[in-house]
Design a protein around this nucleic acid. Structure first.
Length: 607
RNA sequence: GCGCCCGUAGCUCAGUCGGAUAGAGCACCAGAUUCCUAAUCUGGGGGUCGCAGGUUCGAAUCCUGCCGGGCGCACCA
């Protein structure tokens, strides 16, 4: 549980593989070959049998001079085999050198085995990319396992602001990343419509309602939501109900006003999310769960297992609340599951705490079949993580796994100057403002260029400039260039001749330049990238991958400026051109595939 | 005081469940455009990976302790 609790299952289902989609990435494929070779050496007595092969890794070496794939097999096995790493490597190397895809093998450093693959192998990879199309990179790593990704879940008390944007985009991209990696993903929003904040919201609506009826309300008093967006709510209520609630006691209207206002806020929230291209599958109401008795049920279940008791908590050291007093409370034994202290389930008035409701919510998800849950929270909820993870462990009997991703703050900048935001002063930037100014694709991509737990700067001017300072345009430009070449190629080819499917059958032996082969190598790394990012729950890796891919393409493009023979289109050499177009088409597809994970539309041209 | 996160080039940040000589962008310097979009490319300078120990064939990565920054800390959500 806790920190290391991530998806670790890697299952392959060779029986169920569609024929035409490569499901095992090339490194896994070589890993299988290496294991076979080791077993065969063991059979021949050159190695001890029964060695633990689980720590063997196969990966692209950082140094290009170290071949295309490298394995640490000899290093990892040395201790258990009681042999020198170099000796194991020397025995293994010739066997791997005999593989069709391997051109050359070398033992290097302390015992790494570096494989140099044949050009034919790489060209074959390009053909696979073209056949798979934008589905390239799809994996069945998840094996169809149900995963629930919950994000945004902002209180329905006003419009979404920039801090929500990061969580929204992160959750959305993570969800599509997991879907691409073979998980059955549900995206979800938890509506916090049960607490004191929505009561305040209802009162604020009543205030604006009286205002709409012509009453002079003056300054919005402390303890009410002051936002101007509430004016329309008051007007709508006045329109609907006339003045029947004007002088009525609160208990007469509070429920109706809350319900109306929350519903209205959620319409706005969904519209804001739609503006960044987000449409979640499920919206769960906290109040609905409470009313349905879900909290009572999970409470009883925990009580059944003696995880609930009445106790008195120690005051927090160092920072004691002013009104602290020792008081018996109904506590959940979170400390049995990794939390620092036990946590209250009931408030002093006997109603459930937010935490209790949230346990019921996660129990509800669990009962709906999600053994893997991901919550995207803002950094200000960091102190809540341990208790929630503990609760999920407890209520699922250790069966379910909750990973909470904290999104750190976004510091908005404009012209190099930080934009100080304060709700009180009313100058906070809404998600809608941001999208209106920068565009949804830029917002999405920019928000995903940083690890979720690092704070990030978002320079509005750079996002608006649409220049090289803006990483999304660097990638889009590469895609646009690909599309441009393919459009130009229509002057000498029919569209059907240069479709991805047709190009997959092209003779690619003309692709020989190092820049071309490098590009294919990067493209062929896409499935592995997907799996790694999905397993780590880190969508930002895709942004860096796309930048790298674009970089290699731009490099090849410019190489064609220096050496005319490297240009993509040669009117006098159709065969050569088809090979190059296969490459260009492949790049366009992989970029489109990557942008699709981010929910960003690839552009045909930038002009 | 306790818990979580972060600390990597002047700035913003990557760095694959421990791998070989630590990377990118921006900024700075020097170059590339008769020709598929120069919103691009090529080359260069720039680092005690916060500090100190430890683990091992090997540490930016794992462990411990410090230092610095952020967030949070009963009955809010």
């Amino acid at each position: 549980m806790g920190k290391g609790s991530r998806i670790t299952r890697r299952r392959f289902h060779p029986q169920s593989e569609p024929r035409f989609v490569r499901r095992m990435n090339i490194h896994q494929s070589f890993l299988a070959d290496i294991c076979t070779a080791i077993e065969s050496l063991a059979d021949g007595g050159s190695l001890p049998g029964g060695l633990d092969l689980s720590r063997i890794s196969v990966e692209p070496p950082r140094e290009t001079g170290h071949g295309d794939v490298a394995t640490n097999a000899a290093l990892v096995l040395a201790k258990a085999a009681k042999m020198k790493p170099r000796d194991i490597a020397d025995a293994l190397a010739p066997m791997l050198g005999a593989l069709d895809a391997v051109e050359r093998v070398e033992v290097a450093g302390p015992g790494f085995i570096n494989l140099h693959l044949t050009a034919a192998f790489w060209r074959g990879q390009l053909a696979e990319i073209l056949l798979a199309g934008t589905a390239y990179g799809a994996s069945d790593m998840g094996g169809g396992e149900k995963v629930n990704v919950e994000y945004v879940s902002a209180n329905p008390t006003g419009p979404l602001h920039v801090a929500h944007a990061r969580g929204a985009v992160t959750g959305d991209a993570l969800a599509s990343l997991l879907a691409k990696a073979g998980y059955d993903v549900t995206t979800e929003y938890y509506i916090n419509d049960a607490g004191a904040q929505v009561e305040t919201l209802a009162r604020s609506a009543h205030l604006r309602y009286r205002e709409a009826l012509g009453e002079e309300i003056g300054e919005i008093p402390e303890g009410f939501y002051p936002g101007e967006y509430m004016i329309a709510v008051g007007e709508a209520l006045a329109e609907r109900d006339g003045d029947k609630w004007r002088d009525a006691p609160e208990e007469d209207w509070i429920d109706a006003f809350r319900e109306f206002t929350v519903a209205r806020m959620m319409v706005d929230v969904k519209a804001d999310l739609a503006a960044v291209g987000i449409e979640q599958d499920v919206f769960t109401s906290e109040r609905g769960l409470v009313d349905a008795g879900a909290v009572d049920a999970v409470f009883a279940a925990l009580e059944e297992r003696s995880l609930i008791y009445i106790g008195v908590l120690e005051p927090p050291k160092g920072k004691k609340p002013d009104d602290w007093e020792p008081r018996p409370q109904t506590l959940f034994k979170a400390s049995d599951f990794g939390d620092d202290v036990d946590r209250p389930m009931k408030k002093s008035d006997g109603s459930w705490t937010y935490f209790a409701n949230d346990i019921a919510y996660h129990f509800d998800k669990y009962k709906r079949g999600y053994k893997t849950m991901i919550d995207i929270f803002g950094a200000d909820h960091g102190g809540y993580v341990k208790r929630m993870v503990a609760a999920v462990a407890a209520m699922s009997g250790g069966e379910a796994d909750l990973d909470i991703k904290l999104c750190q703050m976004v510091h908005l900048k404009k012209g190099g100057e930080p934009m100080r935001m304060s709700k009180r002063a009313g100058n906070f930037v809404t998600l809608r403002d941001l999208v209106d100014e920068a565009g949804k694709d830029v917002v999405r991509f920019m928000m995903l260029t940083r690890k979720n737990d690092s704070q990030m700067e978002f320079d509005l001017d750079k996002a608006l400039e649409q220049t090289r300072d803006n990483p999304v345009f660097y990638v889009q430009y590469a895609h646009a260039r690909c599309r441009s070449v393919l459009r130009n190629a229509l002057e000498i080819f029919e569209a059907a001749e240069i479709s991805p499917e047709a190009l997959a059958g092209a003779d690619m032996s003309a692709l020989t330049d190092t820049a071309e082969m490098d590009l294919i190598r990067v493209m062929a790394g896409w499935p592995r990238m997907i799996e790694g990012a999905a397993e780590a729950h880190e969508p930002h890796r895709v942004a860096y991958y796309l930048h790298e891919l674009a970089e290699h393409f731009h490099a090849l493009w410019n190489k064609g400026k220096d050496e005319a023979r490297l240009r993509f289109i040669h009117e006098d050499d159709r065969a050569l051109t088809l090979a190059r177009l296969a490459l260009v088409q492949g790049v366009a597809l992989v970029i489109a595939s990557g942008l699709d994970v981010f929910g960003v539309q690839p552009v045909e041209e930038l002009r």
